[in-house]
Design a protein around this nucleic acid. Structure first.
Lengths: 237, 237
DNA sequence: GCAAAAGTGTTACCACTACACCCATGC
DNA sequence: GCATGGGTGTAGTGGTAACACTTTTGC
């Protein structure tokens, strides 16, 4: 940390810029969507990218991440304040940003609702399957994949799915979220039995009326038993 | 990323310093040891702390982490180059360093051997139970705990323990490493059966002669089947 | 009554745990 | 031969996966 007495070389005084990038996810009709930003400047003008900002000296990474969502995508500040936000990993490849050395701390944000984006802004919700590998600028493909991998991991032993759904939900909705993230189908009967047995979710009344067009038995509503994101003793999916 | 046209305020131009801190771990006689550094300057002069350096503009985080080990603790450069090194998390509390805003990327390094520290240097191997909570400066306690938690997690579903042992080892040694990290005893018979059944380890001959002072059956030697750190399908401890 | 959606039960299988017992060596 | 460390087997238990079946609604 102490600078040497001799005249410092440029590489000893120049420092990497620190930034944050945010992957905001939302589950809509059994599909995962990410909030992307259409770039309005070079490089990668016009491309869809993750929202991000340089970190200021007087703010935390979490603060910077929420600031990125608000200022870059037109998300309402109070909406951004309520999002689940957690650090994923730090990306540091030397030439990841052609403008200069920037190290970025990737964050995962989860939203229970498809939050409204300010129409004039550059933000847009994009379904994940419509983001081909290699289509995002910088190293944002890698950041997205790492984030999804992290989400997949935490889904197996935490109640993090609660952050992607409203207070109450049908079991079929919950299962859809799990299936969308895990990328495989789950057995309906076993899914219900297990999640109830380990006490991850509990009943919250019955939904009024049916859901489908052709009728069908009205579903129960459920809620997560814990409001905070907590780890279970063992994996359960 | 684009600077505003108006005259920038200090907080818009000042940036956090980026650093790395390294938790180098080694398993010795069923105990985990960490490489710590006795500080030779303020603040926290004389205290034991994690090795760390500020990141230069032209180096990766991994490079900086190895540089920290070599320059701060007197570890041989070729030894440092062979260590398993992975990113853990980024720590960003506003006042974590009294000298100024510094964001640090914590790294976990694992060594198969108790690497020799240069005698004149400030480095020392300290057994983890001899590092009381709250005894490390800065937020290094939190960094250490987070690193151990990560190691504990990866132990459950990867072969990362291979990085803490030599090429071949007795099963009892391996079990000791697992027990030291998990903080609980494991059943010898089941441990052996499971690790062999899932193919995590394989036999590598029989050790010549006995180990104990009072005799005993000569143990088999084992090795990990995979040399790279890879995830299993399911947790196994 | 029929189709659709949701809820429940059953069974076979597999994995995990705990424990006991057997084997090979030094002294 | 006995203590010690290492290797192997097994029975009981509990969780999981696959599947069939029942309930409740709309039309």
């Amino acid at each position: 940390m102490k600078r040497s007495q001799a005249r410092p070389t440029p590489s000893q005084l120049e420092r990497p810029i620190l930034s944050v990038d945010v992957v905001l996810l939302h589950a809509d009709r059994a599909k995962l969507h990410a909030l992307l930003l259409r770039r309005t400047e070079q490089p990668f003008l016009g491309a869809l990218a993750l929202p991000g900002v340089a970190v200021r000296v007087d703010e935390t990474l979490e603060f910077a991440a929420r600031r990125a969502l608000v200022t870059k995508t037109g998300l309402a500040a109070d909406h951004a304040a309520g999002l689940h936000l957690e650090q994923v990993a730090t990306f540091d490849a030397l030439f990841r940003d052609p403008r200069g050395r920037t190290v970025t701390v990737a964050h995962m944000a989860l939203s229970a609702a498809r939050l409204p984006i300010e129409p004039g802004s550059a933000g847009a919700w994009i379904e994940l399957s419509r983001i081909p590998r290699g289509s995002l600028p910088f190293d944002h493909d890698e950041i997205l994949q790492t984030t999804l991998s992290r989400l997949r991991g935490k889904l197996r032993y935490t109640n993090i799915a609660a952050r992607l759904l409203g207070d109450t939900f049908r079991l079929e909705e919950l299962q859809s979220v799990y299936e969308a993230i895990l990328g495989r189908t789950l057995n309906r009967s076993n899914f219900r039995t297990k999640l109830l047995k380990i006490g991850l979710i509990e009943r919250a009344g019955v939904m009024a009326g049916s859901t489908g067009a052709q009728g069908g038995r009205p579903p129960h509503l459920f809620r997560f038993t814990r409001q905070d994101v907590a780890a279970e003793d063992r994996e359960f999916v």
